[in-house]
Write a protein that binds this DNA or RNA. Structure first.
Length: 636
DNA sequence: ACCCAATGCGCCCTCTGCTGGATGTCT
DNA sequence: AAGACATCCAGCAGAGGGCGCATTGGGT
């Protein structure tokens, strides 16, 4: 069926180990020797090959020590795998002699186009060129994607290196079994192709489910199995019981131990009571009903906890505060958070420690960069569900938080809190710059202020009035203010002095007689362009309406505002308003806040240029509610 | 079968910091 | 009047704390 099919294995996308990457030490040693582990493919069509698995292998990341793989019953290793799409570059050679049921599964050699041979055990979905594969150093086991299934490797050569608590996987004499847990073949496959009683066999229980980022998450359970009996069938028909022989250490002990396996998930238990309780989690059966709200629960304990939420009963009270909880575990956790500060879960990469394991797991993502929660609408991916949920508001436009004062809406509660604090609170916290007297409402803005004004800059900044140079913008600005009101331009013909060079240019013309602005409509010339414009409008522009300023008391008109004011003062009335204006005056914005005055004061102080990295890191919030600017001192 | 401690998952919250547009002020 | 620039402000994401609740493991 698949023989001769041209397929390819994408070189670097195959098996991605999520948690534990398991390579038995024995195999590693043998690999170093150039061998292929304990694998001894026999018989016709021997496809033995070197181990060119390359990316097909599950490997321990460099520098990490692999945990010892024991054969303890029920041990689980989480492998995260990727779906593989075969195409032209790899050939599958049918070696279905290894599989008693070739119509279900196929053991093949994967022949790479480049010549490398990937010897693997694959079960391919019928009619599909897509498979999921598990690589456990010596074999690649494929699964039909997204099915919950058990992969039983019952071959006799699944030897157990019991003394070292390691195992060797060999596909010799292998008989593959693919069992769909949900289908009608349940129980049948296990009976087929019975194991070689001479050797301890193992069961690989594999659950494949859709995982993150296109990978499939595989839970692999390695357990011992010698004999299977259909006895003591559990309450649920979907479970099966095995009588397992421990292969740990010596086989003489032959300790008989029952194991109850859930056929729906990977759960196993040695206790029938635990198993039965677990099986109820797969049913909708909820026999325990709350008499107050008619909500149903699976167990009496759940019902009791629920009823406690109605009655407010919280039996576990904290001795150090007023908190109380429904369960003892909640109390213990609360005490760790609030009182004992015991943090048992410590990060191996930094000093972080947490009360809960889940918090450590979340924290580790900040080291690994893993972002399992992908936004469906954009490329954003988050490290936890809440951030993704919060991010989705940027697509939906939802603003769930409303200011109770002005009813402005916000996407995040923290943003609203800042808004209320800054806009509607009396004692607004302010942050004072440690290097000048500037006070800024937000810490982040103070950071911008420090960056822009107090950062040492390598390039020199020159004063526009003199030759002074500075490396800090704030110092430059303060220096330039010293030139303010300074009449630096002095006339060489008289005692006139002014602040701006352009004023001196105009004045000098009074001495030289220069009039560079001639009127195009008459023969008059002017020293200033502005004078020419006034002349032109007054004498050559018919549409020009001159401004008239009326005295508010007597109504007398003036062409100049200053003349009207002078008259008005004699008249005893207040300042008038322009009756007509050629052009609207620009409205002045609201007067400057005391901040400017504060900065002026600061200008008098010596503020050394600072490199930002040398600035005191801590920004002290200044209680600024109504504090006079003079009270704020500059410690720079 | 019951009980309790432990575990794990999910949800929501706060604090923090950066960013860029809007606005105010100065030159 | 216009441009430059400082500050204001909301949007947004990173990181971590805290708790509710379902489930499991194991003792009795």
């Amino acid at each position: 069926m698949m023989a001769g099919t041209e397929i390819s294995v994408p070189p670097e996308q195959f098996t991605r180990i999520k948690a534990l990457e398991v390579i038995p030490e024995v195999l590693l040693e043998e690999e170093e020797d150039g061998g292929c582990g304990g694998r001894e493919p026999p018989g016709p069509g021997d496809v033995q090959a070197p181990c060119p698995y390359g990316p097909l292998q599950a490997r321990v990341p460099e520098g990490e020590q692999e945990p010892p793989l024991t054969t303890e019953e029920g041990e689980k290793h989480i492998l995260t795998l990727q779906t593989v799409h075969f195409s032209e570059d790899v050939q599958l050679q049918d070696i279905s002699w290894l599989s008693p049921q070739p119509q279900e599964g196929l053991q093949v050699t994967v022949q790479q186009a480049g010549g490398g041979e990937l010897q693997s055990l694959l079960w391919l979905g019928e009619g599909s060129q897509q498979c999921v594969a598990i690589s456990i150093q010596e074999g690649v086991y494929s699964l039909q994607e997204t099915e919950v299934m058990e992969l039983h490797v019952l071959e006799g050569s699944m030897a157990v290196a019991s003394e070292e608590s390691k195992f060797v996987v060999s596909l010799a004499e292998s008989a593959g079994r693919l069992k769909l847990a949900k289908d009608q073949e349940e129980g049948q496959l296990l009976a087929e192709g019975g194991p070689d009683p001479q050797v301890g066999e193992q069961l690989f229980f594999v659950e494949a489910k859709p995982g993150d980022e296109g990978r499939d998450e595989i839970v692999l359970t390695v357990s011992d199995l010698n004999v299977e009996e259909q006895e003591d069938k559990p309450a649920s028909s979907q479970g099966h019981v095995e009588k397992a022989t421990s292969t740990k250490k010596t086989k003489e002990t032959k300790e008989i131990k029952r194991t109850f396996h859930c056929d729906i998930c990977v759960f196993t238990s040695s206790r029938i009571s635990s198993f039965n309780r677990h099986m109820k989690t797969h049913t909708a059966e909820k026999p325990h009903m709350c008499h107050l709200c008619l909500k149903a629960f699976r167990t009496v304990t759940l019902l009791r906890n629920h009823v406690n939420t109605h009655t407010g009963t919280r039996p576990y009270k904290c001795g150090d505060c007023d908190m109380a909880f429904v369960t003892s575990g909640e109390l213990v956790r609360h005490r760790r958070y609030k009182h004992t500060h015991e943090k048992p879960f410590k990060c191996s990469m930094c000093k972080y420690a947490s009360v809960e394991a889940s918090k450590l797991k979340r924290h580790i993502r900040s080291h690994t960069g893993e972002r399992p929660f992908q936004c469906l609408l954009c490329s954003y991916a988050s490290k936890d569900t809440y951030k993704l949920k919060r991010h989705m508001r940027t697509h939906s436009g939802e603003k769930p938080y409303e200011c109770h004062v002005c009813h402005a809406r916000f996407t995040q509660s923290g943003t609203m809190k800042i808004h209320i604090l800054q806009k509607h609170s009396e004692n607004v916290p302010k942050y004072q710059c440690p290097h000048c007297a500037t006070i800024i409402a937000r810490k982040s803005d103070l950071r911008v202020h420090l960056r822009n004004l107090h950062t040492y800059k390598a390039t020199e900044m020159k004063c526009r009035c003199c030759s002074a140079v500075f490396h800090e913008r704030y110092a430059l600005i303060q220096h330039q203010k010293t030139h303010k009101n300074e009449k630096r331009f002095k006339c060489e013909y008289c005692s006139y002095a002014c602040m701006q060079e352009r004023h001196m240019t105009v004045h000098t013309r009074t001495h030289t007689g220069e009039k560079p602005f001639p009127c195009l409509s008459c023969d008059k010339c002017f020293r200033q362009e502005q004078l020419l414009n006034v002349h032109f409008k007054k004498y050559h522009d018919a549409s020009f309406i001159p401004a008239v300023y009326e005295c508010p008391k007597c109504g007398k008109g003036f062409s100049r505002w200053s003349n009207m004011q002078r008259h008005s003062a004699k008249c005893g009335s207040g300042p008038g308003k322009p009756a007509a204006l050629g052009k609207a005056r620009r409205t002045k914005r609201k007067p400057a806040v005391p901040k400017e005055a504060v900065q002026e004061d600061a200008a008098a102080k010596e503020v050394p240029a600072v490199r930002l990295e040398q600035c005191p890191g801590e920004v002290v919030p200044v209680p600024y509610g109504g504090v006079a600017a003079e009270e704020v001192t500059c410690d720079g």
